[in-house]
Design a protein around this nucleic acid. Sequence first.
RNA 1: GGGUUCGUGGUCUAGUGGUCAUGACGCGGCCCUUACAAGGCCGAGAUCGGCGGUUCGAACCCGCCCGAGCCCA
Length: 884
Amino acid sequence: MTEIPDTYNPDEVEPKWREQWRETDVYSYTGDGDPDTEYVVDTPPPYPTGNLHIGNALGWCYMDFAARFHRLMGEDVLFPQGWDCHGLPTEVKVEENQGIHRTDVPREEFRELCIEHTESQIGAMRETMDTLGFSIDWDHEFRTMDPEYWGETQRSFVQMAGDDYVYRDEHPVNWCPRCETAIADAEVETETGVAGTLYEVTFPGVDSDEGATTEQRDIQIATTRPELLAACVSVAVDPDDERYADRVGDTFEVPLFGQTVELIADDEVDSEFGTGAVMICTFGDKQDVDWWAEYDLDLRPAVSESGRLTATADEYEGLTLEEAETAIVEDLDAAGYLEGTEPTEQNVGQCWRCETPIEILSKEQWFVEVRQEEILETARQVEWIPEHMYGRLEEWTEGMDWDWVVSRQRVFATPIPAWHCEDCGHTQIAEEDELPVKPTETDPAVGACPACGGEHWRGETDVMDTWMDSSISPLLIQGWPEEPFEPATLRPQGHDIIRTWAFYTLLRTAALEDEIPWEEILVNGMVFGDDGNKMSKSRNNFVQPETVVEEYSADAFRQAMALGGQPGTDIQFQWKEVTSAARFETKLWNITRFTAQQLDEEHRLPDPAYRDIDRWLLSKCSRVTEAVREDMAAYRFDAALQTLRDFVWHDLADDYLELVKGRLYEGRPGERDAAQQALLTTLSAALRMLSPFVPFLAEEAYRALPGTEGSVNAADWPAVEMVDPDHEAAGDLIADIASTVRGWKSDTGLALNAPLDRVEVYPDDHPDVPVDTYDLSEATNAPVQIREGVPAVELVPVSVEPDHSVIGPEFRNQAGQVVAALEAMDPDYVADQKAVDGEIAVDLDGEVAVIPGEAVEVVEEHRAESGEEVVVLDSELATILVYE
RNA sequence: GGGUUCGUGGUCUAGUGGUCAUGACGCGGCCCUUACAAGGCCGAGAUCGGCGGUUCGAACCCGCCCGAGCCCA
């Protein structure tokens, strides 16, 4: 007998194991095996916001389920954790906290402040990850702000520059005026339906026919952005627009600013919008950029880096765009150029970090070439789960029209390792062996300028897009560049960053290693609130993982995440799933407690004399083991956990335990041993298989169970060793009878252990092995006899059930008629025909159809003959006669 | 507007052609039976979004419509 606590208390158990696991190396990756047995997770490095939200937690649960499963399978699992430290939000936070602007202090000092701030944020998130039981190998932690990391980011930049992926050019780029930096297409979010005003503005004609009237010479353009008039370089109309058919080539004067622009015709103009004439500015939007390039228009940069008008705008210089709009509209009106206004809705590109509307500025920037075919080619070799997520990437990739602008005009990021020669303008990129390098602090190793021999270097102040850091994570976690690169096994991530993290990683691995970054990518969905809406504080449906742990347990939270739906779909957080998970924990604990109490180690036999129900349990367990293994390997965590819960609750607890209690309490030693052995084998297997989902409870229970050794984390996936269909069939019958009799006792108000005179069982189909009634007798507290033939009670055919899968293919389009006719017949008569002729003749409007007997099942009910003291129970698999 | 995913008892969810559609939570009833009342047993509750088609047979395949989410314009 082993004594273990009555109740399971996660508040004590979970912290205990968390503590202990930290001290042992249970999750450590050895990295010395062969690649075939390695399982490498390319974990997302989150931005250190200080808070791991529930959406993150879902992703990490999936990773942890997979990592723990593959460890049980004996694989060498690498589950690292990184932090994507660089970037604007931290700079902003530091500016806020310190009450400074980043230019107020030296560059390096500002970086230091950012590092300090980031470290405190990481601590809080690590805490949550530990609380939730994620089996992260903290020896493989990385932070993109560490020189060991960003030095490699620089190396990747240098190598890609060597392969002509990197270039420097002046090109229009998306620009966030608040962040004062270039941003990539992927960092622009489109806000739809923004209220705005459409202004109709007259552009006076310049040199058209002398005789024409003012109305004929002028043109009315429609614009939502009058503040960009200074940047206007052309006016465009639809070539099919009859209103302007003979005016293409005319020239006009831009009001207030005076530059002369020409009318061009282009298919892209929407003649339905406004007046059908639009002004082209450098630059209002991407369309302007296309036209500017296509028609070789002038460049009139009217917007500054901080979002104010430039000297191009004459007297309006220095106004913000908003101020300029008001002032210019007023002046247009005063001068008689404003023809009218109307409200309109527009789509506005915004910076994804700060939601400021972006501008398009032409600036000299660093770019990485996007080789679309190479990226798609690589992406196609990866297994996408779910498959359709590849479509997202494909659509994004094919729609890319600008290269990736990788330079940012910020501070807290990986420095671009380059210098500019002050004498000749030559740009020098660093050599690999001088990395990591801060070009603002150090001169290049090359010495004098290779182009002109000059010795005056200006270090590049631009830094890299943070995706340049994170998109080499699969390389870095495996020791790149010293170690030869092997694709990681799994990339888990959210679908919101397919166009960024997944896209850039594919690009970079293809460019640097000509390889796929990972074999599989598992894209997790979003987590919605309990009410089906997106979680938000204002909706009051916001749930923090820690809250669930406090109220229930980490194990319950993990189960709820697993059962929320199949990976890849969005899931709704459900408190009811947490409730049922907590109940399962109680159940599992009680099963463990009961088992531990029944086990005594002295009487363990090498080859126990298993009874039918023992073999039944072991056979079921074997099949569950295989089914769950398949589900886990396919990332079907919902199905795996569901199968395990059903098996434990219904087969193991409801059926098996109830059947062997008699044997465990009072059986002969050999009989007890068999039950003990079957129980131990099964429970041990179940705990191991459940450990990816409920690691804390599994550990506590596994260690409490006599006959197990060490941590469940170090255990093996159960062996599938006893699939035995014959005994499973016998066991199914036994379980069915026991539960039917138990149900009947419950219904009639009898005590479950009430003795019965005897029970006779007439199975519908006899199992191929003799049915062992020992446990059944104990469970029903009655002698049980398995009988051949039909019971000595009245058997009444009540209905016929045609087998559609036989009748359908045979009678094709007559099948419906046949079935209808059969069901209309007297069941008694059908039963007779089937018994006598082995087939049934059916009348179909005068035509006779002959149906094979096996295609028709006659449903019969047993009715006790009057006056006889017998209860007849029709169970799923047998007819049971109970004599009280 | 384009693409994509989805619509199954009150709620959430499983189920990609073959007899009475899975489970959970909730609800109603009965039961303290020596692991478990944080439990057991039983029950009610679904025209599988709508219409049409393919098929002997459709929750499942096809088309259209309605509704929702996500991605992109």
